[in-house]
């Protein structure tokens, strides 16, 4: 049936073309930011945004970096600390959750709902009590531990949730065998569960780090002083008012996106696995 064969080939070609267009469309914003950042400000505000500059120049990048480098260090310190804690304590919670979920279905449903709730509640909705706690009791404005505390409210439950999806990967008989040998719960976690859970922990760590790095609202309300600013706060200084510096704004957007993008390009598998566990894991992807 050569005719049907040809029809199938044409359909497949059409699919390729359509998907190719979609993929290009999805890359357009990144392309626009990349070429806009190397234009002069005059060119950035007068030439079409899709046309590369006549002569690329990097002065807006050096300006953007001079505004950004301190925030980069702050964001790295707080982001790494919060992500490591979220992944590790989340792994402990996920392991324990796995143990109790077999025996007490009701308890585990409540625990799972509570941690999903903390993970998905919009950050803004805790604003009033959070600021009371941070200002009055913790004195956490313009510090490292203030944002760290706030991130852990949302991202440690997230770590626990992702890890409870990964934890059933531990074979039950290994835990039973260790228990018969007289190992304590903590030893079993450290010696048996932790090595098996490592890929899951890396996924959780990477996923949490990217989300924390990108969280605008907490960075905006908690660390406004120049020496303590975080990366999203600096991006906010380019909006509104008159005479927006478009080329510098785009250079800043690109620089701010480099850590998550580099992680995604080199460790995308882990990131996608972290994302997929929000739906109970995705086999075959």
């Amino acid at each position: 049936m050569p005719n049907e064969f040809r029809l199938r080939a044409i359909r497949y070609a059409a699919l390729q073309v359509l998907l190719g267009v979609v993929v290009i469309l999805w890359l357009v914003p990144l392309y626009v930011a990349l070429i806009g950042g190397v234009k002069t400000n005059y060119e950035a505000t007068t030439t079409p945004i899709f046309i590369p500059p006549s002569i690329p120049e990097v002065s807006s990048y050096s300006y953007a970096w001079s505004q950004l480098h301190l925030a980069f260090v702050n964001s790295l310190i707080i982001g790494l600390a919060a992500a490591v804690i979220s992944a590790f304590l989340g792994a402990m919670a996920g392991y324990e959750f796995y143990l109790i979920s077999q025996k007490h279905f009701k308890v585990s449903t409540i625990v799972f709902t509570l941690i999903s709730f903390a993970m998905f509640i919009p950050v803004q909705s805790l604003l009033v009590p959070l600021m009371l706690v941070e200002v009055k009791y913790l004195h956490g404005i313009n510090t490292y531990y203030g944002p760290l505390f706030a991130y852990l409210i949302f991202y440690l439950p997230m770590g626990a949730m992702l890890m409870s999806i990964f934890a059933p990967g531990i074979p039950r008989y290994l835990i039973e065998a260790a228990r018969i040998d007289g190992a304590s719960d903590w030893t079993i976690f450290r010696k048996v569960a932790l090595p098996i859970l490592m890929p899951g922990i890396i996924s959780t760590f990477i996923f949490a780090f990217v989300l924390i790095w990108n969280n605008f609202f907490l960075a905006f309300i908690l660390n406004p002083a120049p020496a303590w600013r975080l990366v999203p706060y600096i991006e906010n200084t380019y909006i509104g008012g008159y005479g927006i510096l478009y080329n510098k704004a785009l250079a800043t957007a690109v620089l701010a996106s480099i850590p998550p993008l580099v992680i995604f390009i080199f460790l995308g598998r882990y990131f996608i696995r972290g994302l997929a566990s929000l739906g109970g894991g995705a086999k075959g992807i």
């Binding site: 945004i49 605008f216 380019y238 957007a253 996106s257 996608i272």
Partner: peptide, 30 residues
């Protein structure tokens, strides 16, 4: 998997960066 990654990469771009880029995309005429 490459195509899926390209559809997913915006999840790693912060909404702050997306907001800055959007201002640019929605500029009149250019």
């Amino acid at each position: 998997s490459v195509y899926l990654s390209i559809l997913l990469y915006p999840m790693t771009i912060s909404s702050a960066s997306a907001g800055l880029i959007a201002e640019f995309l929605y500029m009149r005429q250019i």
